[in-house]
Design a protein around this nucleic acid. Sequence first.
DNA 1: CGGTATCTTGATTGGTATCAACTTAAGTGG
DNA 2: CCACTTAAGTTGATACCAATCAAGATACCG
Lengths: 228, 228
Amino acid sequence: MSKCEQCIIRQFNSLKHLSREELVRMSNCKTSKIIKKGEPIFDEGERLKGVFCIKDGVCKVSKMSENGRNQIISLVTKGDLLGERSLISDEPSNLKAIALEDMEICFIPKEEIMKDLEKNPSFSMSVLKDMAKTLKSADNVIVDMAQKTVKQRLAETLLNLESKFGTNENDAINVHLSREDIANIIGTATESAIRLLSDLKKKKIIAFKGKEISIINLNELEKIAQGF
Amino acid sequence: MSKCEQCIIRQFNSLKHLSREELVRMSNCKTSKIIKKGEPIFDEGERLKGVFCIKDGVCKVSKMSENGRNQIISLVTKGDLLGERSLISDEPSNLKAIALEDMEICFIPKEEIMKDLEKNPSFSMSVLKDMAKTLKSADNVIVDMAQKTVKQRLAETLLNLESKFGTNENDAINVHLSREDIANIIGTATESAIRLLSDLKKKKIIAFKGKEISIINLNELEKIAQGF
DNA sequence: CGGTATCTTGATTGGTATCAACTTAAGTGG
DNA sequence: CCACTTAAGTTGATACCAATCAAGATACCG
């Protein structure tokens, strides 16, 4: 099993503020897991026993609404930490995480993380900063959901996806989402999302073949996101 | 000027984890302010120089959307802290805070708070917990905004307001919001909010006279919030 | 190769925004 | 205190957007 001290992934998240000593201790109690595409990492209502550090792959983090529909809150990818919040608030998770592709993740037990949070101010400060950032972006999402049309939200989501995941050799966005997933990100019925996607295709603003989506006319898409 | 050590308000927020010594130091550098109804505490884009501890009164925290409409993100009231996030992330505030009634607030300079965050783990842990809680509720708001109808959101908002602010001697919710404010909380046009409010009044589920709103049929309102 | 899930398009219905007109309430100055 | 001005609240008519239902096309998988 690989060692935390030597793991490059931790450079991308708050774990980089841990001391060598803390990392060695963590290395001794962490476990690695492989999660297959479509499998859950944890479920809504589950009480997490630690946090997950994503070594490879992408997962969707979602929440069931009272009317039975699913809302994707965020996509968590290589280098991210997952599950700190329920750990910190010491409550069952309000969210569900499901792998969108095969994943490799490390599990770090609660006690270890909490000890470091208490003892290492630069680590806890980093987690704090991270959370402040997440909260800020959550505010933005709230405003968008409340006030933008589905068309605007779709355009914005496509832009966000491209900037977050980049593009592959065919200029397609580097993540495979079903139409239903896309609808669940922007918060609409699957058919509506499909309809708007094909509209954008007709207007040659985007192109797609199955789950490979690429942005052709970036400018126009940005305009739509802003409401034109 | 009153002293932090003796202030009861701090029992309601993370400041209760500060030591006597820290509180004395804070007392010496804090300043008190009176904010009149309608006046801003801070504005969008402003770089905050400290945090605010609300001693009395209520303010609305909002954000302008790209299409020029205002979205109220939260109502901050007696006992709450305000502005920690921009301080922690060290960025200009993405939000605007405006007093809904005359307010009394204490301003605590950035250096003081940051020092305590670094030095006092139980304080920083408490702020962390607080933020985790806020984030959780932000997730819920996102889901609601994305998937519930305006009618459901209005019903839910009324329920939230009553549980947060309680009722006065006339059973009216203990906060005065304009119709526009209500619309900006649920994320809709003012007229839509008005229309739905008067619907609820006709059905004797709520009653109102001006800004005094009271819930008459709690059961029915809860049903509407859940989509019936 | 059949069966199943996903994708796609059309038609219909209902919810919400918008515009316009009007009423009521809340200041303001003479 | 009244006349005036302005802001806030209210209601109806209309048009647009998005959800839902239905049905067919395409991709995926054992």
